[in-house]
């Protein structure tokens, strides 16, 4: 792990290319990405559809492998890891938050949150204890036994966030975390992510179409055609309105539905 400025580098991507298909179906999703993300930093990745945002997130999360270049998470080059090692990396160093929550419907809130720990072989009592603390952190400590179907979209996303945090990962990857939420619950979710960064020192990389959500980050990275076309460091967040005011001129999302 390297240090850049005052932050330790949590993620480092250098000359990353990702190509899908061959010959006539060949698509270059990422065309030479260089990006460093410091520990405790909140980075928003924006860009139109097909710009390579999700591909970038998948590479960082060890869900896919780069065609060339290096992707390092916590100083570990993912290209050097086999499938089992990548699985262990995802288990212990990375937390995922998805647009569609992806909770297991037959499990209760606390069981969903404890799932990564159970998968890791941690004893159920210990896993539940840690899951309970994660639920407290997202404000759902009073509803451990509710199933996903009995909760609102915002609550389900908070459970998903608790699940992503329970293993105390180096990095939290969020893919359109407010995409399925109304503006009020979306704002609550973003404030929760912001709080995690400010109070817990959590590193967060978030893909979003929403400028309001992006405004909650420390830095915005804009992609187009698989390349980084703009990086913008934002001033420390005071309030959502202040941030929006300071982002005058930031393009509206080009691929917003």
């Amino acid at each position: 792990m390297t240090t850049t400025g005052t932050r330790t580098t949590a993620i480092a991507l250098h000359g990353v290319h990702k190509v899908f298909g061959e010959s006539s179906t060949r698509v270059e999703a990422l065309a030479g990405i260089d990006l460093d993300v410091g520990a405790g930093e909140f980075v928003a990745i924006m860009g139109p559809s097909g710009s390579g945002k999700s591909t970038l997130l998948h590479l960082i999360g060890g869900l896919d492998v780069a065609t060339s270049g290096t992707v390092a998470v916590g100083g570990e080059d993912l290209a050097s890891l086999n499938d089992d090692q990548l699985t262990m990396l995802r288990r212990r160093k990375i937390g995922f938050v998805f647009q569609a929550y992806n909770l297991v419907s037959v499990l209760t809130a606390i069981e969903n949150v404890a799932l990564p720990l159970i998968i890791d072989g941690i004893a159920e009592s210990r896993a539940n204890e840690r899951a309970g603390r994660a639920l407290d952190l997202v404000g759902l400590g009073s509803r451990p036994d509710h199933r996903p179907g009995e909760m609102s979209g915002g609550e389900q996303q908070r459970i998903a966030i608790a699940r992503s945090l329970v293993a105390e990962p180096v990095l939290l990857l969020a893919d359109e975390p407010t995409g399925n939420l109304d503006s009020v619950t979306g704002d609550q979710t973003m404030r929760l992510l912001r709080r995690l960064v400010d109070e817990e020192g959590q590193t967060v990389i978030m893909v979003t179409h929403d400028a309001r959500d992006a405004a909650m980050a420390d830095r915005i990275v804009r992609l187009r055609d698989g390349r980084i076309v703009e990086e913008q460091t934002l001033p420390p967040v005071k309030s959502g309105a202040d941030v929006l005011a300071s982002l005058e001129g930031l393009d509206a999302p080009e691929d917003a539905p």
């Binding site: 999360g61 869900l63 499938d83 089992d84 699985t87 262990m88 995802r90 288990r91 212990r92 995922f96 992806n102 297991v104 799932l115 990564p116 998968i119 890791d120 699940r163 293993a167």
Partner: peptide, 16 residues
């Protein structure tokens, strides 16, 4: 399919 992929994404091995 999605649920099983999720287990893998959360760190579950193929054998699990």
């Amino acid at each position: 399919r999605r649920q099983l992929a999720l287990i893998r994404a959360l760190g579950g091995t193929g054998k699990q």
